[in-house]
Write a protein that binds this DNA or RNA. Structure first.
Length: 209
DNA sequence: GAGGAGATCGTCT
DNA sequence: GACGATCTCCTCT
């Protein structure tokens, strides 16, 4: 972690808030995966908030099931699910025990261990490669960080022993844009997607300001 | 560059 | 048995 300089690790209280506030606050923070051979780090540039049982688009809308139980658990835990038969998506639980809520990590800007993340994505690093393909989009980002449900679901983001944590290195987000969420049908009009304005690693269609 | 469709499987009804 | 918080490839312009 020496290469990252001095950072503050996020604590459980950070996540014990409304998912909308957590989603905004997470922008600009560093998502860090510690592996035996390298430290993978990415700056969070895009998030989506999923509210509790009042949000039709959230998995928690149908109530607690084995799949979504983490959303109802304590804050600061990883909720990982498998989607479309191909991809994993990484979320962090918000609010306290018994209250559902989560924030989906949609994209990060690679800042450390880039070669390892590219390798995990099957991308050859050279002058022509598009770095956005490493971690721009929930499925891509999860693959770059080696996130799977078996390995990471229910894992704590706030335990000092965890290999999946979030840090604040003092980066100041210039401006935040709020848009509707991507890929959902129900409650699609709710503006619960947050992105760092102008950041090229944000996924989805280009945003006009 | 934009748009459409297929891939593929866990989860819930 | 249907559907999904996605990605990639292919076609068309």
């Amino acid at each position: 972690m020496d290469s990252l300089g001095r950072v503050d690790w996020l604590k459980e209280g950070f996540f014990d808030r409304d998912p909308r506030r957590v989603a905004r606050s997470l922008l600009g923070k560093l998502l860090i995966r510690t592996t035996p051979g390298a430290v993978l780090a990415g700056r969070i540039v895009e998030t989506e908030a999923y509210l509790g049982e009042s949000d039709e688009a959230a998995h928690s809308f149908i109530g607690k099931t084995p799949r979504n139980a983490v959303m109802f658990g304590p804050p600061g835990r990883a909720y990982v699910y498998f989607i479309y038969g191909n991809h994993y998506c990484l979320n962090v639980s918000c609010l306290g025990e018994g209250v559902a809520g989560a924030v989906l990590f949609r994209a990060i800007e690679p800042v450390g261990g880039i070669d390892r993340m590219a390798e995990a994505r099957g991308i050859i690093l050279n002058d022509k490669c598009d770095l956005r393909k490493i971690s721009s989009g929930p499925g891509r980002m999860a693959q770059a960080l080696g996130v799977t449900r078996e390995r990471d679901n229910e894992k704590s983001f706030v335990s000092p022993k965890s290999d999946l944590r979030i840090a604040d290195d003092g980066y100041r987000v210039p401006r935040i844009l709020t848009t509707t969420r991507i890929g959902i049908v129900k409650s699609a009009a709710m503006p619960l997607r947050y992105v760092i304005a102008g950041n090229k690693f944000v996924s989805g269609p280009k945003l006009t300001l």
